[in-house]
């Protein structure tokens, strides 16, 4: 479990991985976006606005996957006191918050021509907005704890409890009647999106995910470098 606890060993992998993930992610994104804007047909009802799907769905996925990762980091922080867990939690939050915000923004831009409204307080939209606010709270809490030199336990508890919102977002369209449509793609493999329209989506999903991972690694490296710098300054001050 603590195999990569040593920051030096982690950095040995993280340094080359950052560039690779970023490169692969941008290539996939370029392919997916060109496919989604040029080569796919419009939808029979929505027309061209269906193309927002290729950026809205990955944003929603990463907004939620980001918090799931924070929750996983929180568990390994609370239970195993993994030395990199708090670093990972702090690094994941800005990327997750950005994608949650992009999910809300693109959804709003899609909703205006499709539903006839920018915003409605239905179950799905509201729970996603709450996720965005949870990210802001987590960022404030985690950075305050870091400044105080804490271990990040308060942030970890917040990250774990906040994960309750994830099943609420996911099942909101099933539990309550919402304006937002039900899910189109299920884990069981079914899809109510025609293959001609669907194919760029996996490309942008993987692309955004790789960029997300690259951003998280960059912020982890920044955090570790800051810790190193602070330790060195303390040491030279003591000498």
């Amino acid at each position: 479990m603590h195999g990569y606890a040593n920051p030096a060993r982690f950095l040995k992998i993280a340094r080359p991985a950052t560039g690779w993930l970023l490169g692969i992610g941008l290539v996939l994104l370029l392919a997916g976006v060109i496919g989604g804007l040029v080569f796919t047909p419009p939808d029979y009802l929505q027309g061209e606005t269906v193309r927002i799907l290729y950026i809205h769905v990955p944003s929603a996925w990463l907004g939620m996957a980001g918090w799931a990762s924070i929750a996983a980091a929180s568990i390994s922080q609370i239970v195993w006191r993994h030395p990199l867990a708090a670093v990972a939690g702090r690094a994941l939050a800005p990327a997750g918050a950005t994608f949650a915000a992009l999910c809300l923004a693109t959804g709003s831009i899609w909703g205006r021509p499709t539903w006839g409204t920018w915003w409605e307080w239905d179950g799905r939209l509201t729970s996603m907005l709450i996720l965005f606010f949870l990210y802001l709270g987590y960022i404030a809490l985690a950075s305050a704890e870091r400044e105080r030199g804490g271990e990040g336990r308060m942030a970890a508890i917040f990250g774990l409890v906040g994960a309750i919102n994830l099943p609420i977002i996911h099942y909101s369209v099933l539990w309550w009647r919402t304006l937002h449509q039900g899910q189109s793609i299920s884990v069981a493999g079914g899809s109510t999106i025609a293959p001609e329209i669907l194919w760029p989506l996996p490309l942008t999903m993987l692309g955004f995910t790789a960029v997300f991972a690259a951003v998280s690694l960059m912020l982890m490296r920044a955090d570790l470098a800051r810790t190193k710098l602070e330790a060195r300054l303390r040491r030279s001050a003591a000498e």
């Binding site: 047909p41 419009p42 939808d43 029979y44 009802l45 929505q46 269906v50 799907l53 499709t114 539903w115 006839g116 409204t117 409605e120 304006l179 449509q181 039900g182 899910q183 189109s184 109510t192 999106i193 025609a194 001609e196 329209i197 669907l198």
Partner: peptide
């Protein structure tokens, strides 16, 4: 408001 369903297909 129009409510869209979860089906997407070309015309």
């Amino acid at each position: 408001l129009a409510k869209h369903d979860e089906r997407y297909m070309p015309p």
